[in-house]
Amino acid sequence: MTALAYILAALAEIAGCFAFWAWLRMDRSPFWLVPGMASLALFAWLLTLIDSDHAGRAYAAYGGVYIVSALAWLWAVEGARPDRWDLIGGAVCLGGAAIILFGPRAA
């Protein structure tokens, strides 16, 4: 459930931010902001579903998932294929996220 919540949150955040990008940088209609804001609200709600004792730890681990999802967006939506440095950086970030989320904690 945690992985799914992170992936869906990342997609919602990226879609919401892209709506603002499209409006401001691509001269799209301000109506793009409506689904953009809904998507960002969905993102925030999805992060509350993460199984973590502390919000900050859930958000920190989310960062790695967000980076990898942004690279997937880059390729799937924007048509720019990530290069090896993108992929290496994404793998490092995802590894760091796993350490933060699943590392043993003192009781």
Rank of each mutant, 00 (worst) to 15 (best):
E13D: 04
F102L: 15
L71N: 11
V68H: 00
M1H: 04
L11K: 00
F18L: 10
S39M: 12
G79K: 00
M26W: 00
S39I: 03
C17W: 03
I50E: 03
A44N: 10
H54G: 02
H54Q: 15
A97I: 06
A97F: 06
I50Q: 12
A38I: 13
W21A: 11
A107V: 08
V77Q: 08
C93Y: 01
M26V: 03
L11S: 05
S29A: 03
I88C: 09
A10Y: 01
A5K: 00
H54K: 13
I100F: 09
A15M: 03
R105N: 05
P82K: 08
A41R: 05
T2C: 03
G16Y: 01
T2K: 10
I67H: 02
P104N: 14
L4N: 08
D51R: 14
G36Q: 04
W85M: 15
R57W: 13
V34N: 02
D51T: 12
I7A: 06
L74F: 09
Y6F: 12
S52M: 11
A98S: 08
I14P: 03
A80S: 11
S39N: 09
W32A: 05
S39Q: 02
D86K: 07
S52K: 00
V68I: 10
S39Y: 09
A106H: 14
L40S: 11
F18K: 08
R28K: 08
P82G: 11
F102I: 06
A9L: 06
A15Y: 07
P35T: 08
L94P: 01
D27K: 02
Y62S: 05
A9F: 04
Y66E: 07
D83K: 04
R84E: 14
I100T: 05
G89T: 03
G89V: 04
L101R: 14
A5N: 01
R57V: 13
P35L: 04
A76N: 10
L42D: 05
L71Q: 12
A60Y: 09
W32Y: 13
G90Q: 09
F31T: 06
V92D: 07
L71F: 11
L94F: 12
Y6H: 05
M37W: 03
A19S: 11
I100Y: 10
Y6E: 02
I7F: 11
I100L: 14
P30V: 10
I88G: 01
A5S: 11
T48A: 02
R57L: 15
L24S: 13
A58D: 06
A107Y: 02
A98I: 15
A9Y: 02
Y6C: 01
E78K: 09
A60L: 12
